[in-house]
Computed example of a mutant assay.
Amino acid sequence: MQTLKNIFSSTLHLFYPHVCTGCGSDLLQQDNLLCLECINNLPHTNFAQHNNNPVEKIFLGRIPITAAHSEFYFSKEFLIQQLIHQLKYKNNTAIGFYLGELMGKTLFASNRFNNIDYLIPLPLYPDKEHKRGYNQATIICNGMSEVMNIPVLNDNVIRQKFTETQTRKHRTERWENVEGSFKIKNPETLKGKNILLVDDVITTGATLEACGSVVLQTEGVKLYIATLAHAAK
């Protein structure tokens, strides 16, 4: 019987190969998304353990945040860029959920992100989310929620203005591009709460600053920020 199972498994793998999302290797267990080599090569930052880390310095003097973190270093043409590209443009929500779980484990263990009441994904403009089919920040939050046992709050913070891509803009242009883009539908829900605002990549922080500044207008809110990756300017 075991021999028949092995033959069936080998035949299935031949026609429907299960390969690593990172490198394409087929040397991984059936339920895994990344092979052991790619898992070992993930560029964790360890920012969550440290006050005044590089992400927190981005917001210094701009908006008051309690703590901030990015799980990975982002470099072009390297593994994390490829995985985030898979999440955002290739409909690979499974890898986003998995990376969210990894970040959730880090935050849970750090003791600097205790007492979070809600995870809030940075909202996309509705037309853009409809075209993509999902918000990648929500997928990340769902993975984090699985580990941290914190609810994801969707549809209360909304993006009310379409903005051009930030990629080729410098810091001032990025801020001007997103100013006035966000709105809170029901501030009472956030009143007195500890909010963790989540996105995929942070560079200058302009978009997160614009959204965070609106969240902070609600009485008693404490703001935390977390992103999957930190891209050096």
Rank of each mutant, 00 (worst) to 15 (best):
M1C: 13
T3N: 10
K5M: 15
N6H: 09
I7Y: 10
I7V: 14
F8N: 11
L12Q: 10
H13G: 04
V19A: 11
T21M: 15
T21G: 05
L28N: 13
Q29S: 13
Q29I: 05
N32M: 15
N32Y: 15
L36T: 14
N40C: 01
L42M: 13
L42S: 01
Q49E: 06
N52K: 11
V55M: 05
K57E: 12
L60G: 02
R62N: 02
I63A: 00
I65G: 06
A67T: 04
A68P: 03
F72K: 00
S75P: 01
K76G: 08
E77M: 03
F78V: 03
L79A: 05
L79W: 11
I80V: 14
I84C: 09
A94I: 13
E101K: 14
E101F: 06
M103R: 04
T106Q: 12
A109F: 02
R112N: 13
N114F: 09
I116V: 12
I116L: 14
I116N: 02
I120Q: 05
L124E: 07
Y125I: 11
Y125E: 08
D127T: 10
D127F: 08
G133H: 00
I139D: 00
C141R: 03
S145A: 15
E146Y: 13
V147E: 11
V147K: 12
N149M: 06
V157M: 12
T163S: 12
T167W: 01
K169N: 04
W175R: 06
N177M: 04
E179R: 15
F182P: 00
K185M: 14
P187W: 11
E188G: 00
K191R: 15
K193W: 08
N194H: 13
L196M: 15
L197S: 00
L197H: 03
L197M: 10
V198W: 01
D199P: 02
T203G: 08
T203N: 05
T203E: 06
T204C: 04
G205P: 00
G205C: 03
A206V: 00
T207G: 11
L208V: 13
Q217R: 14
T218W: 10
E219Q: 13
V221C: 08
V221A: 04
L223P: 00
A229Y: 01
H230W: 13
